[in-house]
Simulated assay, not measured.
Amino acid sequence: MVTPAGTLALLHTSPVHVPVFDGLRDRYHPGLVLRHLVDEELLRRARSSGSDAVAGPVAAALAAAVADGADAVLCTCSTIGGTAERQAGALGVPVLRVDRPMAAEAARYRRVVVVAALRSTLEPTVSLIAEESGPEPSFVSTVVVEGAWELFEAGDRDGYLDAVAASVDRAPLSEDSVVVLAQASMADAVERMSTRRPVLASPRLGLAAAAEAVAASAAVRAGRD
Rank of each mutant, 00 (worst) to 15 (best):
G82E: 11
V95Y: 05
P135Y: 07
G89A: 14
E40V: 14
G206I: 10
R157T: 15
A163R: 15
E150C: 00
P4H: 09
A219E: 15
A67S: 09
H36F: 05
A107K: 11
A90C: 01
L42S: 01
A209N: 09
T195D: 02
R97E: 04
R170I: 02
A201Q: 06
W149T: 00
I80R: 06
L91N: 00
V168Y: 11
P137H: 10
L43D: 03
E131P: 02
V38L: 08
P15F: 03
M102C: 10
V73E: 05
A189W: 09
G155D: 02
V38W: 08
L96C: 11
V114G: 08
R224T: 13
V168M: 13
A218P: 04
S51D: 14
V126M: 10
T142G: 03
A63K: 10
A84N: 08
G23I: 03
A70F: 01
A215Y: 06
R111T: 14
S49G: 03
L207F: 11
V114P: 08
T13N: 01
A84G: 15
A216F: 04
T83N: 05
A60N: 02
V54Y: 06
A148C: 04
A9Y: 06
E131M: 05
D156N: 14
G23A: 15
L8I: 08
A171L: 12
G23T: 08
V115M: 10
E212R: 15
F152N: 07
R44Y: 03
R35S: 11
E175G: 13
P198T: 10
A53F: 05
T142S: 14
I129D: 07
R110Q: 14
R44L: 11
G155W: 01
A211R: 08
A189P: 10
S202Y: 09
D188H: 15
P198C: 11
V199A: 02
R119Q: 14
V20G: 00
V168D: 11
E123V: 13
E175T: 15
T7L: 09
P4C: 08
L118N: 01
V178H: 11
F152P: 01
P94D: 07
I129E: 10
D26L: 13
A210I: 12
T195I: 14
S78K: 00
V20M: 14
T83A: 14
A103Y: 10
A171G: 02
L62Y: 00
V126Q: 07
A70V: 03
V140F: 02
E131Q: 12
V179Y: 06
P101G: 02
A65E: 02
